[in-house]
Amino acid sequence: MSAGRGLRMSMVEAGTALAFALAGTAAIGDSLRIGTGWGADGPQSGTFPFWIGVILVAASAGTLLQAVRARAESGLFASWGQLRLVASVLVPTALYVAAIPFTGIYLASAALVAWFMHRLGGFGWARSMAAGLGVAVTCFLVFEVWFLVQLPKGPLESLLGY
């Protein structure tokens, strides 16, 4: 048993291998539906995905086996402290992505930048908000106005007539 507290490598290893195997199984299942044979004019639509799925399942089974065997001496994937740091970036980002369909990308981006600066960088709220707003407005000008690229927009932009 290795020292330190955190997520164990062997668990993540096994979980990943299982996920890979699951993806392979899904591919096999769907390929059987559309045909995996070798038709008159070469392979059918499902042939390649089918065999790729089979290889993927086999390879992940091997990885899983190795992970189980090596579980005693496996170290840490990441300590809880490290994971907390990762979460401090990942959670706001996930919220950001989830908010985009509702608020549009500009408002969400302003909030994300402001939050990062304030929480992770220790900047004051005023400066953080100003920077967030600056980023959002710059993006808006570059994409919507100059390049005529439409990005996801929300009620605010709608009020402004975009």
Binding site: P101, F102, G104, P152, K153, G154, P155, S158, L159, G161
Partner: peptide, 16 residues
């Protein structure tokens, strides 16, 4: 389409 998209569109239609 997630319901979110519909929400945004209904606003668009409102404005239109």
């Amino acid at each position: 389409m997630p319901p979110a998209g519909c929400f945004r569109r209904s606003l668009l239609i409102g404005a239109g």
